[in-house]
Nucleic acid binder design. Structure first.
Lengths: 338, 338
DNA sequence: CTGAAAGCGCTAACAG
DNA sequence: CTGTTAGCGCTTTCAG
């Protein structure tokens, strides 16, 4: 069923049918009613390609995710999707699987398919990879820590401040030997986390032990292994700051497996505040990151550009908040648990 | 940059350019080389809409997911995506958010956008909702328990057998009062799980207590609440069979909050074997479901139909396996832990 | 308010 | 092997 058949059935020209579809006010009520009736009867929907071919807009956005099984990214993704859906856009969700080549391939696909815009979550692509996108004038918004800044708008958190606050909290409690596990992915966020950690020690006047700073994969498994190695030695750390809840879960598992108690023997603190962190035993103290909100803001920024051509590049920084629960062992502030 | 400009630059007709794009062997090596060089120089990519308009194929599939934050669905989704990507298809991932209206809206969108095929994960749509899809001749494959069987191919597990085996295991250990929590979503899978549960009791000759069968929302929260209510009374169940790991986590939390031990006071067993079930304390016994594999098979089935027109509807049933870990308290079989 | 016709960018017969 | 040309289904001037 195409526009011509509808036109024939209604005894009008295709132009008129096209009008009721796109500019209904420009058609006489009578003819319009008749045509609309037929469209409904035949359940006619205009061919999307033909339409896009004319408009050069697709009503779809691309959403790049580093890893589909990581709840951190999925919460952000949900924020993006919520906004996009509500505005009538459909989302191409692409799973880069922490693989730069796959990420590039998907980016190329997005361009080929002429998405109206792209949200990149915690991308590891570099400036040069974005050249094509820039040329094609496809708007891009970065959400979460990325690897380089190719001049696009960005929604993120202040990782340095967040890491510093968490570290300071541990030092304030009294821990002196605080290890830090940080994802080895090379992004601004990860670098900033380490800077914040150092900063806290410097301000407290406590010497940093370099062997306590570990760059590992952001997985439960690597958190487990790194913690095990560190904890099984005599004189291990008093506390471990894992800069993702994911790694923190692995850390907790390793500590328990060594027969040590959390937080009495080793305190643990995470980063992200994914739902799960409130479910493990003991409940994990962590840095609350407004994941869903970041996605929402990212999508809004993108749609602003797409629909209003509002092209000033913006850098939005959202607030984090230290969530004190049980795993970091601060008895006095435990009341802040929720 | 369009095909005409390329043609002009190469001093050939558009047809020839189109040929090197689609049937390269039908072009003389010389002309082909020249054209390919220009295409590369200009970074020309054919307009996707114009192409699809001719081919009436889009190279994209739709993937419907009930909820984006539930790892069960995401593991299946990843299976689908893995296959689709590898075959050069791009995936429209749609998050139905456990909302029938949203699911219908997304399905309509998929049709409008002429996806080449659709994978529906644990859909709650009914036969009538699929009428449109049928009419448009868009192939559909169902993965996981759905609500009705609209005559599409399907990849699933035998929930009745799986639930029966798990229940039997609990009875064999010696528990007589075994509660069952089942998602209240009305799908074949959920109905089957209850049937399996009953079957196990019947075969063992143990009387079923109807008050122990609870239909609740498939969430951690509801698992918590239902378990709390049941456990805080005197003479509560010896064991709780939660038919999703998600609910089981809530159950575990509630049991612990009541000051009871797992499995000594109350044994717990889950369903799905998501990664997390091996991470909670104590590790959760559960029914292993080949989630990723289900997605992979679903996608393969779909692509078979799309690419080879292989339209016989098939019903693939994958194997589940009882994973005995610590939470169900069977000391002898604990060696099967992994 | 409506219709005829050009054109969006590409593919594929059909001739040559 | 290559060019000409008629569509694919739709939108939008331009006349009337």
């Amino acid at each position: 069923m195409n526009i011509r058949e509808i036109a024939k059935k209604a005894g009008v020209s295709v132009a008129t049918v096209s009008r009721v579809l796109n500019h209904p006010d420009a058609v006489a009520k009578n003819t319009k009613d008749k045509i609309e009736k037929i469209i409904a009867e035949e359940e006619y929907t205009p061919n999307w390609f033909a339409r896009s071919l004319n408009f050069n807009r697709t009503g779809s956005i691309g959403l790049m995710i580093p890893h589909i099984l990581n709840p951190v990214y999925m919460e952000m993704a949900k924020g993006v999707e919520d906004v996009a859906y509500q505005k009538g856009y459909i989302t191409f969700m692409c799973n880069a699987e922490n693989d730069r080549e796959k990420e590039k391939a998907y980016l190329a696909q997005m361009i080929r398919r002429r998405v109206d815009g792209i949200v990149m979550i915690s991308s590891t692509l570099e400036k040069e990879d974005y050249d094509r996108v820039k040329e094609k004038n496809i708007p891009v918004v970065l959400v979460g820590g990325n690897k380089s800044n190719p001049g696009f708008s960005c929604v993120r958190i202040d990782c340095e401040a967040a890491a510093k606050e968490a570290t300071k909290h541990m030092i304030d409690i009294g821990y002196r030997k605080v290890a830090m596990f940080c994802s080895k992915t090379d992004t601004f966020d990860n670098r900033d986390k380490i800077v914040g950690y150092r900063e806290a020690f410097k301000e407290a006047g406590v010497k940093i032990r370099e062997e306590y700073i570990k760059r590992i994969d952001d997985t439960v498994e690597d958190g487990y292994l790194a913690a095990k190695k560190m904890v099984e030695k005599k004189g291990g750390p008093h506390a471990i700051f894992a800069t993702s809840d994911n790694m923190a879960f692995g850390v907790m598992d390793a500590v328990k497996d060594q027969g040590l108690r959390i937080p009495e023997d080793v305190a643990v603190i995470g980063f992200d505040n994914i739902k799960l962190s409130n479910l493990v035993e003991p409940k994990l103290s962590t840095v609350d990151v407004p994941l869903h909100k970041m996605g929402v803001y990212g999508a809004r920024l993108l749609l602003d550009i797409i629909e209003d051509g509002n092209s000033e590049t913006r850098d939005i920084i959202l607030q984090t908040k230290l969530k004190i629960r049980k795993s970091c062992g601060h008895k006095e502030r435990i009341g802040e648990m929720f």
